[in-house]
Amino acid sequence: MTALITQAVILGILLGGLYALLAAGLTLYFGVMRVVMIAHSAFLILAAYLAWAFHRATGIDPLFSLIATVPLFFLLGVVMQRFLLSRLKPATLTMMSVLLTFAIALIIEGMLGFVWTGTQRRISLSYSTASLEVFGANIAVVKLVAFGLAAVSLLALYLLMKATSFGQALRATIQHKEAAALLGIDTEKVAGYGFGLGLATAAIGGTALALDSTIYPSLHWHWIGPLMAIIVVGGLGSIPGAAIAALVLGLSQSLLQIPLGTTWAQTVFYLALFITLMVRPQGFFGGRLAQRF
């Protein structure tokens, strides 16, 4: 029993790491543009498919697909912000951007199904079945690799935000766009890069996901719900908040799987979402920003 719980805890943390990275991306979009990016998880699955296709075509480890997908997604993000989202009227931006990104999610899902059919896909690697024993628990190596990838990316994102002047501009834009503009920050440009960064997290997350999951075009709907719940619980716009909420909820999901099974354990996200909105609508780690949205 203890081994089971240890295993659940470790798996929960590993899963939470991936959630945290993806939620950070969602938070970035929201921070810079006040946009709820529904297509985030669709891009996640797109990246997973690209990793899978790359592996199938070349036989090289799918991790190397990152070399192409991360810059590509970054660019896509910048383009999306500049040519689609910034076209929307500010007054109705929140609602219309939801619809626009929703439409993009549908297009991606449809194209994935069109190009690679709806068949379930899975990457098989030399180390796919390998596992490590940690405190009596069996942990698949691919999960550790995925977590490592997420953790390194989160750390890089953190350093970028804290230690570089671009990060400073980004944080200023997130906190108060008008004030940042008054300080001479080109907030439109920063918003574009922020969007690019957000999409880059989807590229990394997708590759990590492809390592140990079966993928299919409509899988993104299973990700968007939990991720949305995480950013609301964390307080819209707060990256540390999203990361903490991601870990806590990932861990809870993993632990609840023992008594409830995988399906019902997922409801923890929605329960947390509902409770948060009833008790503390601004989220548990959010500031003034979250109250207004």
Binding site: V36, G225, A229, V232, L236, W264, L273, Q282, Q291
Partner: peptide, 23 residues
């Protein structure tokens, strides 16, 4: 729950609700 805060949360809850009911 969903109308307490402005638009974004409303949309999120509306999507989450469909997913949870499906589940």
């Amino acid at each position: 729950a969903s109308l307490r805060v402005r638009g974004a949360s409303f949309v999120i809850v509306s999507i989450a609700l469909v997913l949870i009911l499906l589940l």
